[in-house]
Design a protein around this nucleic acid. Structure first.
Lengths: 333, 333
DNA sequence: TTGTAAGCGTTATCAG
DNA sequence: CTGATAACGCTTACAA
C-alpha cells in the first residue's frame, strides 16, 4: 500500500481498474452480478491503492449510518461505564459504531444533546440519562430515531425501555428491618440532583417509614465518597450507631470506613445498606449489603432491544430488571 | 413543531420560506450576507418544520465531521473509563462527537478497528489500546487522520502521544525496599495478555531484582479480582508473608483482603504495592499504596493535544506524565 | 444580498 | 454482467 496524498475515492479505483463506479460499488458491497475475474481485478486495485470507502458517503446514499447514539451522564460511576461496556460489546458484535454523548446536570445541555442526536443521523439511540424527559425522547423518536431508554418508563411508537426494580426490594428489606428492630431511626442519604433512581428509592424509603409510623431522617451527603467519608468521621464523633441507606456503594463504603475508622463496629453498631451494588461491595471490609443488578447486562440487553426495534420486531417494549438483594457484611440481616 | 413524516431537508425549508438553498445554508451556519429580515423568516420556518440539518451531508460537503474516534480496550477497568470521561469532557466543550471503538485481545480485531476508524471519516483519533502497534497507527495517520496515542511512544507527522512514567518510580521504591529489607523475595503478579504497561513494569521489576542480585518471583494471577482473591486465600494457607507488586489496585485489593481474611497482618506480614491506583486505593482497609496518575486528566490532555494537532499547532508531540507514589497502608514504607 | 450550480463519495435504478 | 446517471442533503464558489 502506498502512502496516500489524498483520500482515494471509488472513482479512482474504477478508473484504475478500468471499470465503472457501479462495479466497484458492487465489489465492496459483496454483491452478485460481478464476474469472479472482474471482482479480483477490482479487489487488487483496491488493495494496491489502499482504498477505504467513505462511511459518510455510504450513509448518505443508503440512509443508514450503522451508528447508534448513546447518551450517558457525565459522572464517572462504575455502574455507568458497565452499562456502556455492555452496549459496546453487542454493538461491536452487530457491526454498529457508537456515538457517545454525555450530559451534565442541566436541562439546557440535555436539549442540545437531543439536537445533536438528531443531526448526527444515527440509526438508533440508547438513552441512560435522567436529564432527558419523556418529551425529549418523543422528539427524538419523532425524527424516526428508534430509541431505548434505560431507567425511565417510556413507551411509544419507536421506543422501548429497560427499567430497574429497586423500590420493591428496598421496601421489603426496610420494613422487615423496622419490624425486627423497634428502636432504630433509619437514615436515607440524599445526594443533591442525583436523578430519578435516587428520587424513587427515597420515596419508597419514606413511604415505608410513614406506613409503619416510624421516625426517619434524610441526610444530605456529597456525591464524592472522599468528602462523605470526612463528613461521617465528624458525624461519628457525635453518634455511635445508625442504620443508613445509601444510593451507591462507594458512598456506602465511605460510611462503613468512617464508622470503622472511628472505632465503631459494623454491623453491630452501624449498619449500612447500599442500593446500587458494584465491585466495591465485595472489596470493602466488611463487605457491603446491596441490591445488585448486572449493569453490563443492562447494556447488552438494551442494545439487543434496540436491534429488534430497528427491525420492527420488538415485542416487549418494557423490560424490567429486578435487583437482587445481596446480604453482605454491612447489615445484620 | 409538527410530527414529521420524513426527514425535512434544506430544500423544503428553502421552498417553504421562498428562498434558495444557499440562503438557508447561510442561516443555519450563522454566516453573514443575509438580511436580518430573511434570516428571521427562514429561522421561523426552520422552527416550524422542525428542521435539523443532516450532519452526514454537512460532513460530506465540508470534509469535516467534527467527530473523533476513540479506541479503548474492552476491559471494564475504572482507569479506562476515567480516561474516556476526560476525553468526553473536552470533546463536549469543543463541540466534537465521540465515536467509540473498543478492541478485544486480538490482532485481527485491532486491524478491523483501524479499518473502521478510517472509513468512519473521523477528524482525528485518540488511541488507548495496546493491541494497536505502531504500524497500525501509521496506517491511520497515512489517511490524514491526526492521532494521539496514549501509553505508547509513537511519533510521526500527524501523530502525538501521552506516555506514563511508572517504571522509574517503581524502580526507586523497589530498590529502596530491597535495600532496607535483605530478607524478602518480592513477587510480581503477572496477568496474562495485559498490555504494554504491565510488560514494561514487569521488566523494570525484574531488572531491579537482578541488578541487586536478589531473588524474585513472578506469579500468574487471573485478571478478575474475585478469582485472585480466592487464589490468594489458598496461597495464604501455605504462606504467611510476602511482598507483592500488583498491576492495578483491584488486584492489589484482592490480595490485601485475602491476607486480612486469612488472619495475616497487612502490612506487617504481607505487603502489597499497586501500580495503577484509582478510587479503590482509598476504599480498602488498609488503604493501598500505589502509583497514581489522574487518568481523567490524561483523557483531557489527550483531547487537548488532538485539538492542537488538528490545527497543526501541536509543538510537544510527546507528553509524559509521571506517576506519583502514594504511600498508604498496604506497605510499611 | 441572493440565487445557480457544481461538487462531496457513495448507492441504486435503469438500460444495454 | 456492466455502465450511465440520478439521487442522498449539504456547502460554496461564482453570478446576478
Amino acid at each position: 500500500m502506498e502512502n496516500l496524498k489524498e483520500r482515494v475515492t471509488i472513482y479512482e479505483v474504477a478508473k484504475a481498474s478500468g471499470v465503472s463506479l457501479a462495479t466497484v460499488s458492487r465489489v465492496i458491497n459483496n454483491q452478485g452480478n460481478v464476474t469472479q475475474k472482474t471482482r479480483e481485478k477490482v479487489q487488487a486495485t483496491i488493495n494496491r491503492l489502499g482504498y477505504k470507502p467513505s462511511g459518510l458517503a455510504q450513509a448518505l446514499a443508503t440512509n443508514k449510518s450503522t451508528t447508534i447514539g448513546v447518551v450517558i451522564p457525565r459522572a464517572n460511576y462504575v455502574y455507568i461505564s458497565s452499562v456502556l461496556n455492555g452496549i459496546a460489546e453487542v454493538a461491536k458484535e452487530k457491526g454498529f459504531i457508537i456515538s457517545l454523548f454525555s450530559t451534565s446536570h442541566s436541562k439546557q445541555d440535555a436539549i442540545s444533546v437531543v439536537k445533536k442526536i438528531i443531526t448526527s443521523h444515527v440509526d438508533g439511540a440508547i438513552i441512560f440519562d435522567d436529564e432527558l424527559e419523556e418529551e425529549d425522547i418523543q422528539q427524538i423518536t419523532s425524527y424516526y430515531v428508534p430509541t431505548i431508554v434505560i431507567n425511565n418508563k417510556v413507551e411509544g411508537d419507536r421506543c422501548g425501555c429497560v427499567v430497574f426494580g429497586y423500590e420493591h426490594n428496598l421496601k421489603n428489606i426496610l420494613s422487615q428491618k423496622l419490624e425486627n428492630d423497634k428502636e432504630i431511626t433509619p437514615v436515607f442519604l440524599h445526594v443533591h440532583d442525583c436523578g430519578r433512581l435516587l428520587a424513587r428509592t427515597e420515596k419508597a424509603f419514606v413511604s415505608v417509614c410513614k406506613e409503619m409510623n416510624r421516625e426517619y431522617a434524610v441526610l444530605n451527603v456529597d456525591d464524592s465518597s472522599s468528602r462523605t467519608y470526612l463528613d461521617f468521621k465528624e458525624y461519628f464523633k457525635k453518634h455511635n450507631s445508625g442504620y443508613f441507606v445509601a444510593y451507591r456503594d462507594s458512598i456506602a463504603a465511605a460510611i462503613v470506613n468512617a464508622a470503622t475508622d472511628s472505632g465503631l463496629k459494623v454491623p453491630e453498631q452501624v449498619e449500612v445498606l447500599s442500593l446500587i451494588g458494584t465491585k466495591y461491595a465485595n472489596i470493602t471490609r466488611p463487605t457491603l449489603s446491596s441490591f445488585d443488578i448486572d449493569m453490563q447486562d443492562v447494556g447488552r440487553r438494551s442494545m439487543h432491544m434496540l436491534m429488534d426495534l430497528l427491525k420492527n420486531e420488538l415485542e416487549k417494549k418494557t423490560y424490567r430488571i429486578e435487583s437482587v438483594y445481596c446480604k453482605r457484611g454491612s447489615t445484620k440481616e
